[in-house]
């Protein structure tokens, strides 16, 4: 009996000795093992292909990739196109439209999102119903949103026609069929789709604000406007940052929305850098130029994001 217990005690001790080290080994390595495949995939499919695109932009690739280096020729072409306004080059149109669409889309999504979130945060009745209604557009794909808005804004069958039938015959709204104005319609559709989502982000931020602070502000006699302007909005500043990142990349990558709202780019007036990149790379046999435009898009995003991320992280670590 005693021998048995001794042996048991010995194994138990051994197990205790082995246990923590094995567990420790697992604890060290398991996260790395689990993350390794996705890390590898990201490394190859994101950064690897970024580099590959960068390389292609210095080649003379047309329909298929080649390794024949031509220096900055493709960038020079894009640079020349940037100033070719009559007739407008596709690249010039794409840049102008990106500025208009991106600027309006980001500004109004942030503005409307914040406004809706603040209004919903007033402890109103029926919030549970209102919130999903505002969020719902996000469940649609851009191509559905785009098609619906195209039909809705079409003067012959949509809004204008309906108002004419109801008697308001002087009403006139034909932006969606005017090549000069159609990019604004794309922005309207995009804002409708995304501002509910931004609202949800802001709402989460607002709920995170400590009620004590608000009460203190109230006691100090701050008006509602002052409370939001001076206290709440500065506190939820990180939400602006997240929303900006989400919106900026959605604006730059939007492709299906512009094609579906405008009806396949009539007059070449609805070009965006993304549509430019796709058509030059895959249908126009100018892969090198398409790659150069992709690199410029990447650098543009980096130019906005890197300083912002840098300043934000520095502030946090301080």
């Amino acid at each position: 009996m005693t021998a048995m217990t001794e042996r048991e005690a010995a194994t138990a001790m051994a197990r205790r000795k082995l246990g923590p080290s094995l567990r420790g080994w697992f604890q060290d390595w398991l996260p790395r093992l689990v993350l390794a495949p996705s890390f590898l995939l990201v490394l190859v499919f994101v950064y690897g292909f970024n580099l590959w695109t960068l390389f292609l932009s210095f080649t003379s690739s047309k329909a298929f990739p080649t390794t024949n280096l031509v220096g900055f020729t493709n960038y020079v072409r894009l640079w020349n196109w940037t100033f070719e306004t009559d007739p407008p080059s596709n690249w010039y149109t794409a840049l102008v439209n990106m500025g208009l669409f991106g600027g309006l889309y980001i500004f109004f999504c942030l503005f409307l999102g914040l406004l809706l979130a603040i209004l919903l945060d007033q402890k109103i009745r029926g919030e549970g119903i209102l919130r999903p209604i505002y969020l719902y557009p996000l469940a649609l794909s851009f191509i559905v949103t785009g098609t619906a808005w195209k039909l809705f804004l079409d003067p012959r069958i949509g809004l204008e026609n309906a108002l004419h039938e109801w008697g308001w015959t002087s009403f006139h709204f034909d932006w969606v069929v005017d090549p000069q104005m159609m990019i604004y319609c794309v922005a309207i559709a995009g804002i409708w789709q995304s501002s509910g989502f931004v609202m949800a982000m802001f709402l989460a931020g607002l709920r995170g604000v400590d009620g004590e602070i608000l009460k203190a502000a109230q006691i100090d006699g701050a008006s509602t406007y002052q409370t939001y302007r001076r206290i709440v909005i500065p506190i939820i500043r990180p939400v602006f940052f997240s929303a900006l990142i989400v919106l900026a990349h959605m604006a730059i990558k939007s492709y299906d929305l512009v094609l579906s709202v405008t009806g396949k780019n009539p007059g070449g007036a609805a070009e965006l850098p993304s549509t430019f990149m796709y058509s030059y790379t895959f249908t126009r046999n100018q892969m090198a130029v398409g790659s150069a435009s992709a690199v410029i898009m990447l650098m543009t995003i980096a130019a906005i994001m890197v300083p912002y991320i840098y300043s934000e992280t520095r502030e946090q670590s301080r």
Binding site: P87, P88, N90, P179, N265, P266, G267, G268, A269
Partner: peptide, 13 residues
């Protein structure tokens, strides 16, 4: 397509 549509919609005058 590019040239025809730009001409049609006034991009090319």
């Amino acid at each position: 397509y590019d040239v025809v549509t730009k001409f049609m919609h006034g991009g090319i005058k």
